[in-house]
Computed example of a mutant assay.
Amino acid sequence: MEPWRPSPRNPMDRIDPKTFRFHFPNLLYASGRKLCYLCFQVEREDYFSCNDSDWGVFRNKVHPWARCHAEQCFLSWFRDQYPYRDEYYNVTWFLSWSPCPTCAKEVVEFLEEYRNLTLSIFTSRLYYFGHPNYQQGLRKLWDAGVQLDIMSCDDFEYCWDNFVDHKGMHFQRWNLLNDCDFLAAELQEILR
Rank of each mutant, 00 (worst) to 15 (best):
H69G: 06
Y89P: 12
R115W: 03
F48L: 09
F94I: 12
V107W: 00
L75W: 02
W97Q: 05
S53Q: 09
L38R: 00
W93T: 04
Y88S: 05
W93Q: 10
P101W: 14
Y82M: 03
C103G: 04
A30H: 14
C100D: 15
C50M: 15
C103E: 13
W65N: 09
P83E: 00
Y84I: 03
V42D: 12
A104R: 04
Q72D: 06
C36E: 10
E87H: 08
E106H: 12
D80M: 01
P83M: 00
P83Q: 02
Q41H: 03
C50H: 12
F40G: 00
H69K: 01
H69A: 07
V108M: 03
E87N: 07
L28M: 05
P99R: 05
P99W: 07
P101V: 08
E87S: 09
A70I: 03
E109G: 13
R79C: 01
P101H: 06
S98W: 10
C36W: 03
Y29W: 10
D52G: 06
A66D: 01
P101N: 05
K34W: 14
Y47S: 12
N60K: 07
N90Q: 13
P64K: 15
E112Y: 01
E87L: 06
E113K: 04
C73G: 02
L38I: 01
C73D: 06
D52I: 03
G32N: 04
E43C: 03
T92E: 11
R85V: 12
D86Q: 11
L28R: 07
C68S: 15
H63M: 07
Y29I: 15
P99N: 07
N90L: 10
C36V: 13
W55D: 08
T118K: 11
Q81K: 03
Y89F: 15
R59C: 15
H69C: 13
L27M: 08
S49I: 15
V57H: 06
N90K: 09
R115I: 03
K34Q: 07
Y37I: 09
Y89M: 08
Q72M: 04
R85H: 14
E106L: 11
E112P: 02
E71C: 04
N90E: 13
Y37S: 08
E112L: 02
T118A: 04
Y84D: 05
L75H: 03
